[in-house]
Design a protein around this nucleic acid. Structure first.
Lengths: 208, 208
DNA sequence: GTCTATAAATAGATAGAC
DNA sequence: GTCTATCTATTTATAGAC
């Protein structure tokens, strides 16, 4: 790495910033397509067309379709980490869990939540071998897991449930088909839909 | 339809029964593959290989990959209708809803619940234009919807929830990723998993 | 209806000029 | 890095003999 450029925290060159911006545009498109139709149904041609560049150019940025999707998943994970980190420390753990869950569902409703690959998708292996993705997933799990145990200790969450079950249940809200079903019905606003699904998730279906 | 065969409720000929048995085998394979990897990732070659017949023979039974998958979905819907019809009339509506929900989740855990296609899959259009599928879906919705309203009237289900939200929430249990996540963990038996997810679904995550 | 062989279309990925 | 053009493999679907 011996170049003529100035030492470490240097302003990125115009060229580098252009490339970064293009990669961001690519990832945004991939993110949207992943949310709309899933990894298998998404084609690299579509991505290239939507971004407005040649397919061969895409492959200069990402080595494969799996890497492409993985980059989008990593970016999504980072957004989740950012949101979680911004939660006010004085808020109750349950409030933080509720806010995070609602945020993921809002993303899903807006068609911006990339859907997880099914069991034996080729993407699964790539994700699991991605340091960035797995690290992000683990940090998110750790933080949410901590909030869950705290909320159980305070009697806010059902303490008879294994924390892992609560964690998975909240994760699953990010791909809950109920959201799109209700939106297709056209009877409710997005906010109403979020309120209703939040209620079924935390309060349950049975009367209280 | 003027043939030499005896009038209406006649015993199907050997040939007809053979063909029916083969179609059943095909549908069973499709059902399994649909559950395992979804419509997009499933290939017709796989189906033919698993059934043990030539691909061309498959196309004598079903006109397209979509028709193939649709037939499996219709069969699955029929099984659901059968299960629902067998519920004891004296049981409470909530018990019938719980039994049906648990049954669908057990199927999912066993890898026998074909996963719904994503929004703009080519399968979606075929399903929506299938009289048999839509009729089945409507009947199931009507019966469950009736149970839901009854359970709300009796104070067993939260009456402030729109019945359609409850219905969709129960439907969504058939493709709940929490089931496979927990199974992958290997910490719980299938029965325990069903108990836990049933609890989060009906009782919610918050303490009672 | 079942098979082998093949068509026709599409997808992921790459070559090579600029 | 971006492009056009192309390769290779896969996939849906069909032809035609039996």
């Amino acid at each position: 790495m011996t170049t003529a450029s100035p030492p470490s925290p240097a302003k990125p060159s115009f060229k580098v910033r252009m490339m970064q911006a293009r990669e961001d545009a690519i990832i945004a498109s991939v993110n949207r397509l992943l949310a709309e139709k899933g990894f298998e149904a998404m084609t690299v041609d579509e991505v290239a067309a939507e971004v407005g560049i040649a397919k061969a150019s895409l492959y200069k940025h990402f080595a494969s379709k799996e890497e492409l999707a993985c980059a989008a998943m990593v970016a999504a994970m980072r957004r989740a980490q950012d949101f979680i980190a911004q939660q006010p420390p004085q808020a109750s753990p349950l409030d933080k869990l509720r806010a995070t869950t609602r945020w993921t569902m809002a993303l899903k409703l807006q068609g911006q939540m990339p859907s997880l690959p099914s069991q034996n998708s080729s993407l699964r292996a790539t994700l699991m071998s991605s340091r960035e993705y797995m690290d992000g997933l683990m940090e998110v799990s750790d933080v949410l897991g901590g909030w869950i145990e705290e909320a159980q200790a305070r009697g806010q969450l059902n303490a008879t449930l294994a924390p892992i079950v609560v964690l998975y249940t909240l994760f699953a809200r990010a791909c809950d088909p109920v959201l799109e079903f209700l939106r297709m019905g056209g009877q409710h606003s997005d906010e109403q839909i979020l309120d209703m699904v939040m209620s079924t998730c935390f309060e349950g279906l049975c009367a209280r």
